[in-house]
């Protein structure tokens, strides 16, 4: 394990250090410390840059000295322009060229942060706000939540995230306003997403309370006739999208209760995202 400390006022060059054949640096984000080793300074700088961008500028560089990194990555060039990424203690994967390796690195990093974040519970969910309250749209990949979030922000909803609802113990949901991961021709490049401003929308900067949770999936021609769930039944549905649930169930459940016990929780299939967005806003205008 690497010994770490913190200092956020100095540039990257002040924080990396050499260990064996590797250039190392360490970051802290959402209270999780991560060390990254690479076989060149250029690659190290690039890794920090993509990590910080993926975590929306919230990576704080740590200096060697006083704490222990909880997670470690090693990225090395394996010849012929290929790179090997190792998440120490877990697995190694040779993922090909630099771009693919960087994408894989930031995705695994983001997953780790979402699992182990201190004082926050990450729920896999799209989030927007309307009328000052958040609407959470939990769902797995491919459930259409990014499409729905995009339609909502085009119609004036404030953008929080197309990926995570970041819940705090006080029940508020915080923005994780990354560029939207819009599917294009069957290929998704999450790190080259579309900024919400390009959709004519705005990103939230402040946390808000959760007004509604919409458990829905797209079905061609479906009519929105939702069932309203009790808070308890709604929360157990959201549990299946709650990333740290199997790591810290007690904290996760407490935060879910705090965030969702007063929210309206609806479940049902929906038709086209554009039509549904209008229905959703009409509903919220009546209920919020």
């Amino acid at each position: 394990m690497l010994e770490l400390g913190s200092n956020e006022s100095q540039p990257f060059g002040e924080f990396y250090f050499v260990e064996g054949d590797h250039i190392k640096f360490a970051i802290e984000v959402y209270g999780v410390s991560v060390s990254v080793a690479a076989d060149s300074l250029v690659l190290s700088e690039r890794l920090f840059e993509v990590a910080d961008r993926a975590m929306l500028g919230q990576c704080r560089l740590l200096d060697a000295g006083s704490a222990i990194a909880e997670h470690e990555f090693v990225i090395t060039e394996s010849g012929s322009g290929n790179y090997e990424l190792t998440s120490v203690g877990e697995y190694t994967t040779a993922s090909g060229d630099l771009r693919q390796t960087l994408e894989l690195f930031v995705r695994i990093l983001r997953i780790k942060i979402s699992q182990f974040a201190k004082g926050r519970v990450f729920v896999h969910s799209g989030v927007i706000s309307w009328g000052g309250k958040a609407i959470m749209i939990p769902g797995n990949s491919g459930s259409g939540k990014t499409t729905l979030v995009a339609e909502c922000v085009k119609r004036g909803a404030l953008y929080f995230s197309d990926e995570y609802a970041v819940l705090a113990p006080d029940g508020l949901v915080h923005p994780f306003a990354r560029a939207l991961s819009i599917t294009n021709g069957g290929r998704k490049w999450s790190e080259d997403g579309i900024p919400v401003e390009k959709l004519g929308g705005r990103a939230a900067t402040e946390p808000v309370e959760v007004g509604a949770v919409v458990l829905t999936s797209y079905e061609p021609g479906a009519e929105w006739q939702p069932e309203r769930l009790t808070p308890g039944n709604g929360i157990i549905e959201v549990i299946s999208h709650t990333i740290p649930m199997t790591i810290d169930a007690e904290f996760s459940l407490k935060v879910l209760k705090s965030a969702l016990s007063r929210a309206i929780i609806l479940r049902g299939v929906r038709g086209e995202a554009s039509d549904f967005a209008e229905l959703l806003f009409s509903f919220c205008n009546r209920e919020f």
Partner: peptide, 9 residues
């Protein structure tokens, strides 16, 4: 938790 996290092709 990864089963519900975004994974991309």
């Amino acid at each position: 938790a990864m089963a519900s996290a975004s994974c991309n092709c």
